[in-house]
Simulated scan of single mutants.
Amino acid sequence: MARPSWPRAAASFNCSTACRIGAVRRWPTGWRRAFASAVIQPRLVRALRRERPAAVIMHGDIAQIIGAPAAWLAGIRQRVVVNHLAMGIFYKSLRPVHTVMGVLGLYRRIVFVGESARREADGLPRRFLDRCSVIPNTVDRVAGDGIAARARFGIPADATVLLNVGNLSAQKNQQILITAMADIPDAILAIAGDGPLAAELAYAAHGVGDRVRLIGRVPIDEIADVYAMADVFVFPSRYEGRPLALLEAATAGLPILASPIPENVEVVGTAAYYIDGDDVEGWTDAMQRAVKDREFREQLAEQTSRLDVGSNDTTIASYLRLMS
């Protein structure tokens, strides 16, 4: 295995990176997790001792639970865990483990990417809460080439495009968008992303014809083009942290239809049109209106264009202050 390249200032990793360092192909299921942890952790300790980063920043349940003790054993003082969702939402049985690690100080700094995710920690011990901070996710405004993106994905220049960006999963709830498209003949739904429901959603999309395009995972340096090709952003997620896709849509000035979960409302406030994530008829009506009513789209776009979603420079400065 090639030796990982680490920045001297900080080492930042998620579960996948921790697995690569430990020479484990992917995070296993069931009882094999204990074996994988036993393999990964000592190798991670050796890597951290060798590279001596000033800080270790850990993203996600598994990376935090494996990485924080490893960083402590390696003598790394600044151990920062970042919660992109409510703590323990994927592995609820691990919530007590997170709590103990925070109380004992294995987590020296605990960051939540939004106020909604942070509120899920209310009621935990004071020694845990004293380590908590909120540093919102942000994105920078980047101009994209929508004409080039439409040509790349075979979308007609005069088509009205509804766009969703995200992991193809139950969390993102793209199935409701595909179902709604059965009654929207004069638009195209483009879904950018990959994930565990890719085959299932492709099968569902086949029944709607070429009005639903699963365009796959888009490289980060091309994602601005995808937003630029869209007329409306649709986001029916069931839960989030502080969704980057919604931030990107807002910075692109797109009209937004979204589910009214607290995390979405925290990002775009009154600038979006909200529909319950399980309301198929509501999503069908809202998407039809967005396609047919230009004035409705323009009103929503004007509201999103006035949003202040911060910048990456602000986020970086906040992390530097936290670790100073």
Rank of each mutant, 00 (worst) to 15 (best):
L307Q: 07
P185R: 00
G123L: 04
I261G: 06
A198L: 08
A198I: 03
L162N: 00
M181N: 00
V267A: 13
S37H: 10
L247K: 04
G22Y: 00
V165F: 01
A68P: 02
P243M: 10
D145A: 06
D210V: 07
C132A: 15
P260S: 09
L307D: 04
G88F: 02
T315D: 06
V56N: 05
G22Q: 03
E302M: 10
V309N: 06
L300Y: 05
A290I: 08
E240L: 12
A159N: 04
R321W: 09
M87I: 14
T179Y: 00
A121C: 11
V268C: 12
A148P: 04
Q41T: 15
R33C: 15
I89S: 15
Q171L: 12
P156M: 03
R77E: 15
P136T: 11
V24T: 12
M1N: 09
L322H: 10
G277K: 12
G282Y: 02
L168S: 02
L197Q: 14
A9V: 12
L197N: 02
F35W: 13
I316T: 15
L106H: 00
P96N: 07
P156N: 08
G195F: 10
G88C: 03
R25I: 09
D293Q: 04
M323Q: 09
I40H: 02
F153Q: 02
R213K: 15
R152A: 13
V103G: 01
S237C: 08
G282S: 09
I110F: 00
A205I: 00
A190T: 08
P7R: 14
